[in-house]
């Protein structure tokens, strides 16, 4: 499946694609390219699968989101799964996925998710029990009240400066 996705990304002409066969190799690739390397060489987006049964994809995302280096911790992650159930989707979101893509894989779906990551970046939330992209998407019509209990004034808001 990784080969298939790689071929599709190549058709999209997205630039360099690194495919790894194990989570360990993926970690090494991320460390190698995103730490002490020029930003132009950095990996821009990570695509990972759930990798059942051990769900190593979730552990990999956790590793990324708890990494010491900002250039790794803030990497956008597209999390893919052949499981359509809510538990898996929520696990992906709660582990810090930027976007979740439930398979089957189609070119249209993949392109849409990538463009969403690029065009609509979400702020990151750093809380005692969570670090990752803001999990709130939109208020549905059934959802009458705001679920977040904290008031705006209780949150610290920071903007990265160009010099960073």
């Amino acid at each position: 499946m990784a080969d298939l996705m790689t071929s599709m990304l190549r058709e999209f002409n997205v630039g360099k694609i690194i495919t790894t066969c194990s989570v360990q190799d993926a970690k090494e690739a991320v460390n190698l390219r995103n730490i002490n390397a020029p930003p132009s060489n950095h990996i821009d987006i990570v695509i990972t699968d759930l990798l059942p049964p051990q769900e190593d994809g979730l552990k990999f995302m956790e590793w990324l989101r708890t990494h010491d280096e900002e250039s790794v911790r803030f990497l956008p992650i597209l999390f893919c799964s052949a499981h359509a159930n809510m538990r898996i989707v929520l696990s992906g979101r709660d582990t810090g996925a930027t976007e979740v893509m439930v398979k089957p894989l189609t070119a249209e779906k993949l392109a849409h998710r990538l463009l969403h990551i690029i065009d609509k970046p979400r702020p990151y939330i750093k809380a005692p029990s969570f670090f990752g992209p803001d999990r709130r998407r939109q208020m549905t019509s059934e959802q009458k009240t705001e679920r977040r209990t904290l008031k705006q004034k209780d949150m610290k808001v920071s903007h990265e400066s160009e010099a960073a």
Partner: peptide, 18 residues
């Protein structure tokens, strides 16, 4: 006590690239 929560807005590096 309210949770210490920080909202971090990052520069959109990929967008800058592409």
């Amino acid at each position: 006590q309210p949770e210490q929560v920080e909202v971090i807005h990052r520069i959109n590096r990929i967008k800058k690239k592409v």
